[in-house]
Design a protein around this nucleic acid. Structure first.
Lengths: 409, 409
DNA sequence: GCGCAATAGTTCAGCCGTACAACAAAACGC
DNA sequence: GCGTTTTGTTGTACGGCTGAACTATTGCGC
């Protein structure tokens, strides 16, 4: 709709979030979304009548919409269960399992992998390869990832499921469109468009919808599967320290998708020099390599090794981790003052170290967060398990399916 | 819609941003918004046909919608101007002036006031009273503000205009609902609900829609009147240092509306003590009182006095301001790394000091912002004039009118 | 000066999706 | 076993958008 007006000089109005023109079928799309959300976010399987009551639509309308979702394989009907009550028994509605799946992909410093989730949240396929990818060749690594993904796709399609799309997690700066990786220092990658390189395809040859995102941000989304408030800050502690900001169950990406770079918050301008050029960056206190080295371990050692030392009461390890915790707390307090969140989820390496850093971080944040007197900040370890970004990526694909069911029915 | 389901244990689905049930009149509302946005955000007055082309609606539909907006006093028709072209001349559509007005209110440390803006952006009424409100009595001050507002309302209603609502700017922590002031240290106010206290009413006695917001955040919105990118960070330098985050022309408030508290970002942990309890907060380097004291002036002096000293080459003033600029740059670099914006607008006292701090801030930010190599950060002075929060508040009211025209036609 | 082409805006039948009300289905309770 | 209750479905009414035909008003060529 270029709207090349020749009458008045230039009349190309920007269309804000209201989106585009609403027609009759827009009603359908919106109400389908509403009904899908009602089924997917309910705490107990609702009936058509429940959905009608909750959404404000009539039972008649809800019925036709639910029928469409059932036909499209997004929603399933459980066998009607007779309630302890007069009246025709209700048909409970639940997300349909083994029908539509989302793919989570990840390339990180020490592994690459694929995970397929269905709408119930079950893992229906998974492939993981470990090994150092430090300073690796993107073409070669993405080819290996494509092979893994193709295996997973073949597996789920053989079982009669449809693949809705994929999200690729990378440890670096990715633009908000999900197309371009600007730089991933720890992989040694830069200026790259991984999507055409991957060229993922379904069994019938059609190109899959693939988007790239930052690893910490997708890992943050994995937390939404558990018992977490709608808004929180997720901090992923690895070689780098990244963060994902979730507001009202949605990622806040900032102008270009580059927010959450907490690793280079300056904790102390007179501190140690950082690879980024500045001094006293958080990464120099709470990055994985610093924690390992400070504990007298090689940087290739696993975090478990630090935990062993901490358990044994090793003074160097205890000092290093405590110092890292204080620095992390200071940086997080700044974060809380600037973006305002009341829950901080510590992920990545910090999960295993939580017993030692948790209270340190919480103490410093409580002390420095301006709003703490009115609303204390909750600091907790991440609940999603290993390779959280795989789960988060797959969930994000499925979220987009539920958010626009009209495209899948 | 409580949805007290008695069938299944609990089925109260959360309804996400999709909102509530969409009916026929929802289409009307959405398309009215679309058409209103097309008229209000066009660079040149569009015709009905232009709006149709830009929105994707048919000319028939646009016609009925525009007629409704004209009848409601939101849009006006200019006399048809014969273009240099065959065909019936178009009727240019413009925002209707002197019809609907928004009210901006503010109570700050050194003044209180009201400003009324119409949809064109013209100031149609204004009342300002200066004087120190440090440690003032909220009841008394709000009563004075109510009197000023009543005068302004009477004035615009006498001229046949309707008041759509008001926004009250306060220098403190305000919740996201816009109801409760948690604390405003420099006023000495705390735990307050100013809206019922103000109890603003239109001439016919109906209660006006009033919301409270942080002063820096409303001032940020005032910038949208000028030539500013859709996403930016606005920093208001006063006694305290606050910020407003604007993403895609909308305020980002954070979980509870308490974000942007940049004044208490720790610039140097070994720096001077701050009233908040921590050490080395930005406010202790770049707050107005510190800049005045550092220049050898009383804290009651105006910022102009510092400018005079700077012009005269006063060494103490130059040092103090330069030090403040460096601290501000460091804090802003952190901000940029955490929330990702590419434009920083310096407002409040920093406008007058811009000639001395601008390049210092820009230099430090450029040096420390992680994304700077890919996309340089633009630092600029605020364009909105004095009492920007008044303009921003009034504009915010009018934005809500244009965003939901169905309520006003 | 007049007819033709071009553009703006309006009118009206048709379609689509929702509401409303009546109805069919399937349980409970006395 | 029959009324009551609740679920889910069927059919009609209504509102809002589309598309095509129509009117209004200009410029241009002859």
């Amino acid at each position: 709709m270029p709207a090349i007006s020749t009458t008045t000089p230039a009349a190309a109005p920007r269309v804000p979030d209201g989106g585009s023109a609403s027609r009759q079928h827009t009603l359908r799309e919106r109400n389908l979304r509403l009904v899908a959300a009602a089924v997917f976010e309910a705490t107990a399987p609702p009936s058509r009548a429940d959905v009608a009551a909750a959404s404000g639509l009539t039972r008649a309308t809800v019925s036709t919409l639910v029928d469409r979702l059932v036909a499209g394989g997004l929603v399933a009907e459980l066998p009607p269960v007779a309630a302890q009550r007069a009246g025709r028994p209700a048909v409970p509605l639940v997300p349909a399992g083994r029908s539509v799946v989302g793919l989570g992909l990840e390339v990180n410093v020490d592994y690459l992998g694929v995970r397929a989730l269905d709408l119930v949240g079950d893992v229906v396929a998974e492939r993981v390869e470990t090994g150092s990818l430090h300073d690796s060749d993107p073409r070669e690594v993405l080819a290996r990832l494509r092979a893994l993904a193709a295996e997973a796709i073949a597996e789920v399609e053989a079982a009669g499921m449809r693949v809705a799309g994929a999200r690729l997690a990378l440890p670096g700066l990715v633009d908000a469109r999900g197309a371009r990786l600007e730089v991933a220092p720890n992989l040694g990658w830069s200026s790259l468009e991984p999507v055409p390189e991957l060229d993922l395809r379904a069994g019938d040859g059609r190109a899959l919808d693939v988007e790239v995102a930052n690893e910490a941000k997708l890992a943050a989304l994995a937390e939404l599967a558990g018992d977490v408030p709608p808004s929180f800050l997720y901090v992923s502690g690895d070689v780098g320290v990244g963060a994902g900001i979730v507001v009202d169950r949605q990622l806040f990406l900032g102008e270009r998708g580059w927010n959450g770079e907490i690793g280079h918050v300056v904790v102390d301008p007179s501190g140690p020099r950082c690879s980024c050029g500045a001094s006293g960056c958080l990464e120099q206190y709470a990055g994985k390599e610093v924690l390992l080295r400070g504990s007298g371990l090689p940087t290739s050692a696993p975090v478990d090794a630090v935990v062993d030392l901490l358990r044994a009461g090793d003074v160097a390890a205890l000092d290093t981790v405590r110092r890292g915790g204080r620095a992390l707390g200071a940086a997080l307090a700044t974060f809380v003052n600037l973006v305002d969140v009341s829950t901080i989820v510590l992920g990545g390496a910090y999960v295993e170290l939580y017993g030692w850093v948790g209270h340190v971080v919480a103490g410093v944040v409580e002390e420095r967060a301006l709003a703490a007197p009115f609303a204390p900040v909750d600091v907790r370890p991440a609940a999603a398990g290993k390779h959280a970004a795989l789960t988060g990526g797959a969930r994000e694909v499925l979220r987009s399916v539920v958010a626009d069911p009209a495209r899948w029915v």
